[in-house]
Nucleic acid binder design. Structure first.
Lengths: 206, 206
DNA sequence: GTCTATAACGCGATAGAC
DNA sequence: GTCTATCGCGTTATAGAC
């Protein structure tokens, strides 16, 4: 794919990064479940068994990508600090960050939030990372909701779940319909402002 | 799985139904992508190559399930006629029908609305069925929106897409969190009334 | 010890001859 | 319907090279 099919005797960590990079390329081009352990080896100029020096199994590669995906996700959600601003600004920013991560990392997003590989089960360590990241993201959404000074008649957890579902649905449909378009464009990618407005209209103090 | 592993000399159509039934069982138990052509044959008491007398390939089985899935989906959405009622009743009914189909046919739903098998591409005939079904479902949602006599400030197509995204997000998250619970129960499965209320609050005439 | 190779196993989908 | 065979897959065992 990217690396010349010649033998390589480099540093271990670099090889590991190469493997993960090639794996992501393949997942993007052929689909997450179409990742081939053998093909990664061949792309690196190795015989398939040699790849076992770097990863114990094909699922170990999935696992590392899963773990790193949630780390990146948590980092990006955290960097988008909850700056105040006009009504809805904080919600809009949170939704956009979520959708942008999905659009720019469609391979990881599938692996993280869907379950396209039946026999891949994340390791306990990776599951812990993912739970932490999801909780951190949830706090971002809680803050985004609170900062809007809303008047919600239902339990706050339900309001949060409605927000999450709305955002998740927009994201999934954007990826299904216009995966190549950035957030803000495309049939569903452009609807975040309208969704925020709808939430404000429904819940804003009167 | 269900059928005894004995030879069978029955009618062709019955065998085809058996194959599809067994395939659905496997997809439900092991995941859509884990369907095994060989295992279907063995369950039927056949040698794998014999199965080619009924389906040209493994993907042909997927294709038939995909096509039938959209037929059932369209039928169920159509049967839920747009009866009038209290505000929100029609929207609630449409959302529930959609989510119920997904919950009761999780194997088909994955095959139809996600793309868990990278090298399965629906045939043109099946794609036509799916497009027709999706358009019919869309009309149901349009009717549900119109029957509510709403005051929407955005283009009606955008309102429709927001509705679809909301519903899709709730459904996906219900299946991810409480796949065993029927519509109406579970963290997200119980939120349809709240979602409808939110839509009414945002869009209802004042 | 670390990296590589070759050989081989069991499984999958599938094609062809009977 | 069968049996045989091909090919690719993930994986293991084993042995040689740095």
């Amino acid at each position: 794919m990217t690396t010349a099919p010649q033998r390589r005797r480099r540093y271990r960590d670099e090889t590991i990064e190469d493997i993960l990079r090639i794996a992501r390329e393949m997942m993007r081009k052929e689909g997450v479940a179409a990742l081939s352990f053998n093909a990664i080896a061949r792309t690196l100029g190795m015989q398939p068994p040699s790849l076992y020096n770097y990863f114990d199994s094909k699922n170990a590669i999935y696992d590392e990508l899963f773990r790193r995906g949630f780390q990146d996700f948590a980092r990006q959600m955290a960097e988008r600090s909850g700056q105040d601003g006009p009504p809805g600004e904080n919600m809009r920013s949170a939704m956009e960050t979520y959708m942008r991560f999905a659009q720019e990392n469609q391979d990881l997003y599938q692996l993280m939030f869907q379950r396209p590989v039946p026999d891949f089960v994340p390791s306990e360590a990776s599951m812990a990372v993912s739970l932490g990241a999801l909780q951190a993201a949830q706090m971002q959404f809680v803050n985004a909701l609170h900062s809007e000074d809303l008047d919600i008649e239902i339990p706050v957890e339900q309001a949060l779940d409605l927000f999450i579902a709305f955002q998740h649905g927009l994201t999934e449909l954007h990826l299904a319909n216009n995966p190549e378009l950035p957030v803000g464009e495309g049939r569903f990618g452009k609807l975040i402002p309208a969704a925020v407005q709808m939430i404000l209209d429904a819940w804003q103090k009167v």
